[in-house]
């Protein structure tokens, strides 16, 4: 309960919700991670497969940056389980199933244009 009263009275807030520094680091990282694939794609620097890899890896990294530096996914209330992280992981797993499953199932079902 002690944790609660801190929470609503604003002590420790800067610490709990990230600092200016973490926001700036996050911002710079996400700009860098956006520029890398843009440069690679627009200048046609690599062949198809490595390009796709770079696009996806930087996108995922950027998502992680948003999660940690902006959305503060590491925060937790007291010693409760991290329900939000569990839900997120499950949700991402389902999205992966939906996307890859659809691609797999539809491979031989394209109407071919």
């Amino acid at each position: 309960m002690a944790n609660h009263s801190d929470h609503s009275h604003g002590h420790d807030e800067a610490h709990a919700h990230g600092s200016l520094k973490s926001y700036i680091v996050g911002f710079i990282l996400s700009i860098v991670l956006t520029i890398i694939p843009l440069v690679v794609v627009l200048n046609h620097m690599l062949s198809q497969l490595p390009t796709i890899l770079i696009i996806m890896v930087t996108a995922v990294l950027q998502f992680v940056v948003q999660l940690f530096f902006f959305m503060h996914v590491r925060e937790r209330q007291g010693n409760q389980p991290r329900w939000n992280v569990m839900a997120l992981i499950f949700g991402l797993a389902i999205v992966l199933v939906v996307v890859s499953g659809s691609i797999w199932i539809m491979t031989y079902n394209g109407v071919g244009y």
């Binding site: 939906v98 499953g101 659809s102 199932i105 539809m106 079902n109 394209g110 109407v111 244009y113």
Partner: peptide
């Protein structure tokens, strides 16, 4: 127009 009815069946059963 390039649509694919199979995709609906795939999605609705998900």
């Amino acid at each position: 127009g390039g649509g694919n009815p199979m995709m609906y069946i795939n999605l609705i059963w998900m």
